[in-house]
Design a protein around this nucleic acid. Structure first.
Lengths: 236, 236
DNA sequence: GAATTTCTTGTACACTAGTACAAATAGCAT
DNA sequence: ATGCTATTTGTACTAGTGTACAAGAAATTC
């Protein structure tokens, strides 16, 4: 590539190149995985120079780290707000639904800074979790588990008769379903044989909430078996 | 590394190196992603020479392709068997549960050739799907969608009052939950605060079946509400 | 307007990637 | 044994990787 004219033209106006790099990286990582994307790919997509990436984020890991830092706080903040609002609902059924929605909504679109950034960031988290990315794992463990606990506690309160263990599993499934919905957005419409071609984010959210609420309310797993196991374990 | 003595020792008896390479690749890909693993990594893990990989599978993509070929047929066969058996159950509730179990069981352990290979292969599929791997995408589309349709049809039969669209979504969520459970096996025990430290595959299967059946049986999405939501939703 | 900090560029370097290929070896029928 | 084939090895090659760094441009401050 000729560096002179082309780049000057493409980058004639670069109000915030750092931002553009973050954005491009987010998009590329979330669709192709971390290792499949090179720093040069990112730079090119952002209309920047590979050196700029090094300058702003030092390393490729640093870039990923910054993406997480950028999104984690607003997303969890939004979740906390919605959770607090949901907890004020009196009717247990409505409350449970609101709690689940409070967890799901910000994942599809963080309403703060970037339009649609929530969905993209969630997709990114899904990919990083699948790839077993070490940087992501660390951040998630120390940032998201608190929020997850808060949600699990809130759910537990509306479902006192369900063992916490079951609630944890079902919340876990929720996250998996959430991730997968964002990772393969086209699969649903392919499987529904055209019956529902207009599968959009709104549908996904409502379907996910409905399904999760039902799953959470399901009778717990055979109550005898866990007791046996617990008795056998606590003795040791 | 000294090539002479060490390799001769490690590979003193190599009844089927091709097999070992496939196995090592499966393990490495499914835990680290496709692009994070080099051919040399695979060769070393299999106690083989990088050249052997090229000899047996031509390219890295060819290796991945062979892994899929190896597992897809037995897995879908097993699923078909279990599905056929499930369909013979009279009681609709029991039948639905058996159908879901027929889908889930082979994903956790294909009972044919490799012990535990089902879970590893499912994890691999999860990772490939997250990474948007092109090879995997092609194979899955042409191999798994048939099976998925068969299952969806069977489910639909036990739940005639649920729109097919909703069933598709909920099956989609099942797959996501399934994938995620295998991708992050440690997360559940971390979140359950030690209440259930012995989270094993059996628990996962039963929890997944229970949750999915409940989700599938949930009342369909209010056919009127989407009109309201569509006006209020954030992203088009 | 000059100095200084902040950003951007171009390029270079050490390294690893996937793959190719000739040589060496093993297995096996004859 | 003797070929013959299938496999395994060692190595080489090109392309692309992450990152470092000097030099230039822009912005900001005094």
């Amino acid at each position: 590539m000729v560096p002179g004219a082309a780049s000057k033209e493409a980058v004639a106006r670069k109000p915030n190149l750092r931002e553009a790099i973050l954005c491009a990286a987010e998009e590329l990582f979330s669709t192709n995985g971390f290792n499949a994307v090179s720093v040069r790919d990112i730079a090119q997509a952002a209309g920047a120079n590979p050196g700029s990436v090094t300058y702003h984020f030092k390393t490729k890991d640093g870039l990923l780290l910054e993406i997480y830092r950028r999104h984690c706080v607003p997303m969890n903040l939004r979740r906390s707000e919605l959770l607090a609002a949901a907890k004020r609902i009196r009717d247990p059924q409505d409350r449970l639904e609101a709690i689940v929605r409070a967890y799901v909504l910000p994942a599809f679109s963080s309403g703060s800074d970037l339009a649609g950034g929530g969905a993209r960031f969630t997709r990114l988290r899904a990919v990083m979790s699948a790839e077993g990315n070490e940087v992501a794992r660390r951040i998630i463990a120390q940032t998201f588990d608190d929020t997850s606990h808060a949600f699990i506690d809130a759910i537990q309160e509306t479902l006192p008769h369900i063992p916490r263990n079951d609630i944890v599993w079902r919340s876990h499934f929720l996250l998996g379903a959430l991730y997968y919905s964002l990772v393969t957005p086209e699969r649903v419409s392919r499987l529904s044989r055209g019956d529902a071609d207009g599968a959009d984010a709104g549908d996904a959210i409502e379907q996910l909430v409905r399904a999760t609420v039902a799953a959470l309310q399901a009778p717990p797993l055979d109550p005898a078996a866990p007791l046996q196991r617990r008795a056998a374990r606590t003795k040791a």
